[in-house]
């Protein structure tokens, strides 16, 4: 299973594109934040697909966005 590319996404429907990105993001998010990975992945999928592709290739960017999402989630639930 190689890296997900914009070309691979372009052949899928918008819903399928988010699913493909989510399937790749979820295990990475889970490794950072095991207990809230489903919600955090759901939040991240709101972002542009180009940004999500970048996060898949950049652990630093992903971690930064996960940290931000956790903060937003905690504020929302407070």
């Amino acid at each position: 299973q190689g890296p997900l590319t914009a070309t691979m996404l372009s052949s899928a429907s918008p819903e399928e594109q988010k699913e493909m990105l989510g399937e790749r993001l979820f295990p990475l998010v889970r490794s950072i934040q095991p207990t809230k990975a489903s919600k955090i992945t759901g939040m991240l999928l709101e972002l542009d697909n180009s940004e999500l592709l970048h996060m898949l290739e950049s652990p630093e960017s992903l971690r930064s966005m996960v940290d931000e999402a956790i903060g937003v989630l905690q504020a929302h639930q407070a």
Binding site: P14, E15, K18, E19, G22, E23, L25, F26, P27, S38, K39, T41, G42, M43, L45, E46, L73, H76
Partner: peptide, 22 residues
């Protein structure tokens, strides 16, 4: 409040219906 269900949860292997308007 409808915001209670936010954010939608992504579950691997299931269809993603989180943001149908995007």
């Amino acid at each position: 409040s409808s915001s209670v269900n936010w954010p939608p949860e992504f579950r691997p292997g299931e269809p993603w219906k989180g943001y149908p308007n995007i």
